[in-house]
């Protein structure tokens, strides 16, 4: 496990996810995606922005195997996939520790090992000291941290996020963005992140993908040149503003 350098894009180029001309039409006739080409390589953090209802969640569900596409080919280069849902989906009867252990438990990992893994993940997301608490006693941000920790126990190579911070307040969201960047640089997963916030997209990722309205397809892709770990102040630089402006423009054009 080597730490990634400033520019993770260069370190490795294994493709962990590839969509080639993927389309998805639901049985009720709704076409959610059409002609989607997308690739996520090791060391990349790809963010997808698009109007609501354009098929972003569908894209992730196809990537994770929850649904299959009706057309095109999807290649997944790993079976260690983390998936973080929009809401934390913690089991309310389990403590934080037990919730974080859940996925390892479902995969039949021995108790001692999964406890150690959960402890490490809880430490990584900054929830130490809250292990014995029940979800209902946690704030929204802490629930999301627990949810992240739960997926981290899988030691994912490909990490899928479906608008995980969408329901959080601005300050919590920014803090979690920074922690996610830290996790990304330390844990070496590839990320595919969905958001409706342009600034979050530019701040987090190595690449921003803009989708059009339904049926969703990719209208434009932007490379983000900023180095990791990212300084929160870059949000106020002209370069950041210019890139965010371009993304917003593409988003607006794809929408109309």
């Amino acid at each position: 496990m080597t730490l990634l350098s400033d520019s993770p894009v260069d370190t490795a180029t294994t493709e962990l996810l590839n969509f080639s001309d993927v389309a998805m039409t639901f049985p009720n006739g709704v076409t959610a995606l059409s002609g989607v080409d997308l690739s996520v390589k090791r060391g990349e953090f790809v963010t997808v922005v698009g109007p609501s209802g354009c098929g972003k969640s569908t894209l992730l569900r196809i990537a994770s195997g929850l649904t299959s596409a009706t057309e095109g080919t999807v290649t997944v280069g790993t079976n260690r996939i983390g998936y973080v849902f929009q809401d934390a989906t913690l089991l309310p009867w389990r403590t934080v520790q037990q919730n974080v252990e859940l996925l390892a438990e479902l995969n039949g990992i021995k108790k001692a090992k999964r406890q150690a893994e959960a402890a490490r993940a809880i430490e990584l997301v900054g929830l130490s000291g809250f292990e014995k608490q029940l979800p209902k006693t946690l704030s929204g941000g802490m629930k999301m941290r627990a949810s992240l920790a739960r997926s981290l126990t899988l030691d994912p190579e490909l990490f899928l996020f479906d608008e995980p911070f969408g329901a959080l307040d601005e300050i919590t969201r920014e803090r979690l963005n920074d922690e996610l960047i830290k996790l990304f640089t330390e844990q070496q997963f590839a990320g595919l992140f969905i958001t409706h916030s342009v600034s979050e997209a530019v701040y987090l990722s190595t690449k921003v993908v803009v989708m059009s309205g339904r049926p969703g397809n990719i209208v434009e892709t932007f490379d983000v040149p900023f180095a990791y770990p990212r300084d929160p102040e870059i949000r106020f630089t002209p370069e950041f503003a210019a890139l965010a402006g371009e993304v917003s423009l593409a988003l607006r054009e794809g929408h109309s």
């Binding site: 929850l66 929009q86 989906t89 479902l106």
Partner: peptide
């Protein structure tokens, strides 16, 4: 979402029943 969490780990029916549905 909780169901899909189990589905993603390929949990079988019995596991879903005992660890998810029944406690819920």
């Amino acid at each position: 979402g909780q169901r899909e969490l189990f589905q993603l780990q390929k949990a079988n029916r019995w596991t879903v029943l005992t660890k998810l549905e029944f406690p819920a």
